[in-house]
């Protein structure tokens, strides 16, 4: 499929293969996006249109009634706010704590091969299946009377974004040549001062990408939010949407309106940072 193409001297054949490729690409795109589009249409259709047969892909009159219902009449506005607060706060905390730890692991030589061992250990905590820690965390939060609070969610989200921040930032720090920090030290700055004034500005793109990734993970998170919050006080958007599903009368319009809003930040970030995201998601797959 690579350069063996040269064997085919017939130009028409080459064009045909390109055409087939294009068709496949397009089909993949349609398969990926059509279901999401479908959900968007449900959120804008009246209930009558929703149940129409054959299904209406394009020819319907849009309505905003479900959005109004979800965010004004019902509590989805609050869920949205909670999701945002938890995401931002836990990301900030994870970034601060994680970046400091990453810097220590990248720059200081620790005894007993701790640099490598600690990095691997920190990374391994991310590997637990969520349910394994969710059950004891529920009990711990219950004992601390932190159930149904935003604080509990923030704490938990920080703890599972932390390994990722450490892993990413350590890589960025390691890529930076040391002599800039050494120059800063000789110039009279403290280690922390050098970190803030010289190093951080230089890794800020990486920091930004890490931040966005943490925001997305926290925003999407479901299981811990489900387990730790049952009441409207601290419910996040994903749990709120799920609640509508497991009830008797399912309000599809409301549900899809809420879901559509839930994906807006994702789409924005995905478009802006798709290069970094592939690298982060594959966790170094290419380099092995």
């Amino acid at each position: 499929m690579h350069k063996t193409e040269h064997k085919i001297s017939n130009k028409g054949n080459v064009l045909f293969v390109s055409f087939v490729r294009f068709v496949i690409l397009l089909s993949a795109l349609v398969f990926a996006l059509a279901p999401v589009y479908w959900m968007l249409t449900i959120s804008f259709k009246t209930e009558g249109d929703q149940f129409a047969s054959p299904p209406l892909w394009f020819s319907f009159t849009p309505t905003l009634e479900h959005y109004y219902d979800a965010f004004v009449t019902r509590a989805f506005g609050e869920y949205l706010l909670t999701s945002a607060i938890v995401a931002v706060t836990s990301t900030v905390l994870a970034l601060v704590i994680g970046t400091l730890a990453a810097y220590a692991l990248a720059r200081f030589e620790l005894p007993f091969k701790l640099n490598r061992r600690l990095s691997l250990w920190i990374l391994s905590t991310r590997m637990f299946p969520a349910i394994v820690t969710a059950v004891p965390l529920f009990l711990m939060m219950r004992d601390l009377q932190l159930l149904n609070t935003r604080a509990a969610l923030i704490i938990v989200h920080t703890s599972f974004n932390l390994p990722f921040v450490v892993w990413m930032m350590r890589g960025f720090f390691a890529d930076l040549p040391r002599d800039l920090e050494e120059a800063a030290l000789v110039d009279g700055d403290s280690r922390l001062g050098a970190l803030v004034r010289v190093v951080l500005p230089l890794v800020s793109p990486g920091l930004a990408a890490t931040a966005v990734f943490c925001l997305i993970v926290s925003w999407n998170e479901f299981l811990f939010a489900l387990v730790l919050t049952q009441t409207d006080a601290a419910m996040t958007l994903p749990v709120g949407i799920a609640g509508r599903v497991t009830q008797y009368e399912i309000k599809w319009g409301v549900m899809s309106a809420a879901a559509s809003v839930a994906i807006v930040p994702i789409l924005v970030f995905a478009l802006a940072l798709q290069k970094y995201l592939v690298r982060g998601l594959s966790m170094g797959a290419v380099k092995g």
Partner: peptide, 19 residues
């Protein structure tokens, strides 16, 4: 565009496909 399905909250994936 291809990133979209895996970036979605899992809840939304569930909602999308239930629909």
């Amino acid at each position: 565009s291809l990133l979209v399905p895996m970036m979605l909250p899992t809840v939304v994936v569930g909602v999308v496909w239930r629909l």
